[in-house]
């Protein structure tokens, strides 16, 4: 099979799908031209991510990595969400085919973009370098 059982499970039964209408932070990354867009919604209370939801346009691994990323950050402090790496998402999914690794990068970037939006909206100072990712490319 192309994908691990875990990837297929998160693809078939994605966790935390949907929208949070009163989200504290929203991040959208990717490009429809490239075939994947992820949108991440965060609800943050007292620096804890109390709720997270996602919407994804993309392939099986794009949906699965979004789903896994939401599971990994739900209930965690914002600082931990910022530390989420694409590698951690891939490992939690028991691996991805090499040419699908960019999906996990997108998931990491979606989380970060949502946190950045939360910081911006609330006037929280941050080091811009930690959000220095390129616009979506397929590296």
């Amino acid at each position: 099979m192309l994908y691990s059982e875990k990837v297929m499970d998160h693809f078939r039964n994605p966790r935390n799908v949907g929208e949070i209408p009163d989200a504290d932070g929203i991040g959208e990354v990717g490009n429809a031209k490239c075939g994947d867009i992820m949108k991440m919604y965060l609800k943050i209370d007292d620096d804890i991510i109390t709720d997270v939801k996602f919407e994804t346009f993309g392939c099986g691994s794009a949906i699965a990595t979004s789903s896994m990323a939401t599971e990994l950050i739900k209930g965690k402090p914002v600082s931990e969400a910022l530390d989420l790496s694409n590698k951690a998402v891939v490992e939690a999914l028991d691996g991805l085919p090499a040419y699908k690794l960019h999906c996990s990068v997108l998931a990491e970037e979606a989380v970060k973009a949502a946190v950045k939006d939360y910081y911006d909206k609330n006037g929280i100072a941050y080091d811009a370098d930690q959000f220095a990712f390129d616009d979506h490319d397929h590296e």
């Binding site: 297929m8 693809f11 078939r12 490239c34 075939g35 346009f57 993309g58 392939c59 699908k100």
Partner: peptide, 26 residues
């Protein structure tokens, strides 16, 4: 419009339908 082909193929396969797509991901 608004969706990607590989996801469609995987879900169709779950329903026992074998098809193909011209999406980049496939």
């Amino acid at each position: 419009e608004g969706i990607e082909g590989e996801s469609m193929l995987l879900l169709l396969d779950d329903k026992g339908i074998a098809a193909s797509s011209g999406s980049a991901c496939t």
